[in-house]
Amino acid sequence: MKRQIPLMIVMILGFLFVIHTFVPHKISADFYDWWQEWAKAISPFAVVLGVISLGMVHGTKISRKAPNWQYSLVTVLALVFTAASGFIWGRQEGTPYMWLFKNVQMPMSATMFSLLAFYIASAAYKAFRARSAEATVLLIAAIIVMLGQVPLGMQISRWIPDISTWILNVPNMAAKRAIMIGVGLGMVATSLKILLGIERTYLGGGD
């Protein structure tokens, strides 16, 4: 029963949504409004999941004094302080909460991703090898697209941006369209599997 009832709910709601998509009747619209209002009221609680999971991981490390537990303390203190500052002093521009976001969260998350530039440069030197004819074609297409995107490409030859555009509009487009159709059909199949109760991983483990 612990699995059956939730699966029934998905099935019933799912098929009501299929009907809603095709039938613009008032009952259908009312059903949608009802669902929307409830979905809104459910949504804020999802954040609790994140906090609990983070608290469990780092709380355990701190209480057990696991190796490097001090860093976990940094995470927990940062979480508590940031959240508290938002509740105490508000969230407007100029508050400690916004200061933390702008000068701690923003620069670090941006820098985290920028590290990838170094890794891709290193991979370009060490890993991108023309081992086969297919790999060579891939590398040549990549080089033309790379040059086609920067002003320098046009200065080398006016053909480079043209060829780059052609690659994107013709062979790339054909490839991505075929993949998109495949993915689209896959999405439809997965959605149907969820609606019919065949795909159940989203329910989590247990009975």
């Binding site: 530039a117 891709i120 440069a121 370009a124 030197y125 060490k126 890993a127 991108f128 090898r129 023309a130 590398l139 080089i143 790379m146 040059l147 995107q149 920067v150 002003p151 320098l152």
Partner: peptide, 17 residues
């Protein structure tokens, strides 16, 4: 900067190969 960096990446690919 993007121009110069792209050229560097291309040089890396060529030299690596």
């Amino acid at each position: 900067a993007q121009s110069v960096a792209h050229v560097m990446i291309i040089v890396f690919i060529i030299v690596g190969n």
